[in-house]
Measured scan of single mutants.
Amino acid sequence: NQASVVANQLIPINTALTLAMMRSEVVTPVGIPAEDIPRLVSMQVNRAVPLGTTLMPDMVKGYA
């Protein structure tokens, strides 16, 4: 099963992502692949992401 990127904390809108904000977890539906975590660092979210939410490509500016 593919691990996805999950929010490790509440991430406010327009926040630049850091490693501490993300974790890898096997979830359904599948979100951004966990191997993309290094690429996500310093990218901004375009909405508030609650703790435990799977990051989807449309939630991260410049990812999709």
Score class of each variant (00 low, 15 high):
Val5Tyr: 01
Ala34Pro: 06
Pro29Asp: 10
Met22Gly: 00
Ile37Phe: 03
Val41Lys: 11
Pro57Lys: 09
Ile11Ala: 01
Ser4Leu: 01
Ala3Leu: 11
Val6Met: 09
Ala20Pro: 06
Leu10Tyr: 08
Asn14Ala: 06
Ala48Arg: 11
Ile37Pro: 01
Asn46Ala: 10
Ile11Asn: 01
Ala64Asp: 14
Ala34Tyr: 11
Asp58Ser: 12
Thr28Trp: 04
Ala3Glu: 14
Val49His: 02
Pro38Ile: 09
Gly52Ala: 10
Val41Asn: 05
Val45Pro: 03
Thr53Ile: 10
Gln9Arg: 13
Leu10Thr: 13
Ser42Glu: 07
Tyr63Leu: 05
Arg47Trp: 07
Ile13Val: 12
Gln9Gly: 05
Met22Leu: 11
Pro38Arg: 05
Pro12Arg: 10
Ala48Asn: 10
Ala7Phe: 02
Gly52Asp: 08
Leu55His: 00
Gly52Lys: 07
Pro29Met: 07
Met21Cys: 03
Pro57Met: 10
Asn1Arg: 02
Met22Asp: 00
Glu25Leu: 06
Glu35Gln: 07
Ser42Gln: 13
Pro12Ser: 10
Asn14Gln: 11
Ala7Leu: 04
Ala34Val: 11
Leu40Met: 06
Leu51Trp: 14
Val27Cys: 04
Leu19Lys: 06
Asp58Met: 15
Thr15Lys: 04
Lys61Ala: 13
Ser4Cys: 04
Met43Val: 04
Glu25Ala: 06
Pro57Leu: 06
Ile32His: 00
Tyr63Trp: 13
Met21Glu: 02
Arg23Thr: 05
Ala3Trp: 06
Val49Gln: 02
Thr54Val: 09
Val26Ser: 09
Thr18Ser: 09
Val30Asn: 15
Ile11Thr: 02
Leu17Tyr: 00
Pro29Phe: 08
Thr28Phe: 05
Asp36Glu: 14
Asn8Thr: 10
Pro33Gln: 10
Val6Arg: 04
Pro38Val: 12
Thr15Leu: 06
Leu17Asp: 01
Ser4Lys: 02
Arg39Thr: 05
Asn46Glu: 08
Arg23Ser: 12
Gln2Phe: 11
Pro50His: 13
Ile13Tyr: 15
Ile32Pro: 00
Pro50Arg: 08
Val5Trp: 02
Ala64Leu: 11
Val60Met: 07
Asp36Arg: 05
Ala7Trp: 01
Ile37Gln: 09
Val60Leu: 07
Pro12Met: 11
Pro33Tyr: 14
Lys61Gly: 07
Ala34Gln: 07
Ala3Ser: 12
Met43Ser: 10
Gln44Leu: 14
Asp58Cys: 15
Gly62Ile: 04
Glu25Pro: 01
Ser24Thr: 14
Ala16Cys: 10
Ala64Pro: 07
Met56Ser: 13
Val26Asp: 15
Asn1His: 07
Val26Ile: 09
Val49Ser: 02
Gly31Phe: 01
Glu25Ser: 08
Asp36Met: 09
Ser42Leu: 14
Asn1Cys: 12
Gly62Lys: 08
Val60Ile: 11
Met22Gln: 01
Gln2Tyr: 12
Ala64Trp: 03
Ile32Met: 04
Gly62Asp: 07
Asn14Arg: 09
Pro57Ala: 12
Leu55Met: 09
Asn1Val: 15
Tyr63Lys: 02
Pro38Lys: 12
Met56His: 06
Val26Tyr: 11
Leu10Cys: 15
Ile32Val: 12
Leu40Ile: 11
Val30Ile: 09
Pro29Ser: 07
Val30Leu: 11
Gln2Asp: 15
